[in-house]
Design a protein around this nucleic acid. Sequence first.
DNA 1: CAAAATATGTCAACATCACTGACATAAATT
DNA 2: AATTTATGTCAGTGATGTTGACATATTTTG
Lengths: 192, 192
Amino acid sequence: MLLQMPSKNTTISDQAREMGSSNTADPNHTISLREENMLTLIELFFFAYRDFTEEGDEILDTFGFGRAHHRVIHFVHHYPGQRVADLLGILKITKQSLARVLKQLVEQDFICQKEGSKDRRERLLYTTQKGNKLAEQLANPQIERFEKTMTSFSKQEQQTIEEFLFTLIRKNNRQDVISLMAQNGHFPTRKP
Amino acid sequence: MLLQMPSKNTTISDQAREMGSSNTADPNHTISLREENMLTLIELFFFAYRDFTEEGDEILDTFGFGRAHHRVIHFVHHYPGQRVADLLGILKITKQSLARVLKQLVEQDFICQKEGSKDRRERLLYTTQKGNKLAEQLANPQIERFEKTMTSFSKQEQQTIEEFLFTLIRKNNRQDVISLMAQNGHFPTRKP
DNA sequence: CAAAATATGTCAACATCACTGACATAAATT
DNA sequence: AATTTATGTCAGTGATGTTGACATATTTTG
C-alpha cells in the first residue's frame, strides 16, 4: 500500500477549511519556521530508518529470524569477542530479550561462545562460519544502499554526514560508541 | 547498564588471539576499507535512531501509550486531515496494527474523525486540543535534539544532511514523502 | 579463607506491536 | 444493479520488549 494523497478529489485548502470548522484548532500555539524545519528532518529520519530496517527482512524470514537476530549477529560478527554484557549495552535491551534470540542463534550454530581466558565467567561471543555467511548476507544490501547514497556526496560532505549521525547520539552514550568502534580501528569523525 | 569494553583486563590483541584459535575465522573473505566505512556509518545510524526513539518513552508511559501511539499522533497532528489509508502508507503497518492504537486514541479523545466532505466513506483524522498538547509534548524533546545538532552545522552542511536522509529513503517511496510534505509547503532538498 | 560482588543463564508472567485472513458495512463508481 | 473502495472488526499468532526473582560459577575483597 502506497502513501496516498489525502483524497483524490480534496485539495489542501479543502482540508484547511475542514480544520477551521472543527474543534481542533490550537489558537495558543504558533510553530516557528525553525521548528517546522526540524519536524521535516525528524520525519525524513523516520522514513530513512523505516526503509533501512525493511531490508533483510526477506532473508531473515527464510531462517525464521527477526530483526533482533539481525542486530545480534551483526554486532557479534563485526565485533567478535564481545561479552553478553557488552551486547546488552550496545543494543540497550534487557538480558531476557537478548537471551531469547542469542539462545536460538547458538543452538542453530550461528554464534558460538568461548570462555574468557582471563575471567572464566565470561562468554565471549563469536560468529561461526555459518554465522559469518548470514551476517554478510544481511549486511550486503545495507552496505550497498549506504554506498550508493554516500558516493553522491563529496568527501567533505561525507564527513559532515558522519558528524551528524554521531552528534545525534546522546552525549552519555558517545564514549561507549567510540570505544566500541575503536576495537576495529575506527574513530567516527565528530565535531570539536 | 553501560556499554563496556570487552573485558577490563583483556586487550584487543587478546581477542584476536582467541579468535585465531577458534573455528570462527573466515579466510575466504576480506572486507574492503570502503565496506568497513559503510559498516561504521550503518552502526552510527543505528545508534542515532536508538537514542532518538528513546526520547518520549517516559511521557508515553504516563499515558499508557507506546511508540506506535507516538507515530500516529505525530503524523495526524502534523498533517491534519489524513485518511486512514494515508496513515497506513506513511507508517507501513497493517490496518489491524493501526486500528488498535487509533481506536484508543479516538476513545480517549486525542484524535477525532470527520467524515470526508467529498467522499463520506473517508474518516479524516485530526488531533483534538488534548491531542495537540500531547503531540507537542512528545515532539519538543526531539525538536530540541535536532535543533542542538543542526545548529552546529552550516546552512550548506544542513542541506547536505537533509539530502542524505532523503537519499536513504527507497526510490519507490520518495515521491510519497514529497507529496506528504508538500501538504505543509515543505519540499525536502534532494540531489539533482 | 569466607564473604561479597560479578557475569551469565534461566524462569514465569506480562505488554506492545506487528502479522494474516476473513468478513461486514456503507458509500461511491461503473 | 453490480462492483469497487474505504473503513472497521474479529480471531488467532508470533516477535520482541519488559520486570523481578533466583541459581550457578567465578572473581574479588575484607
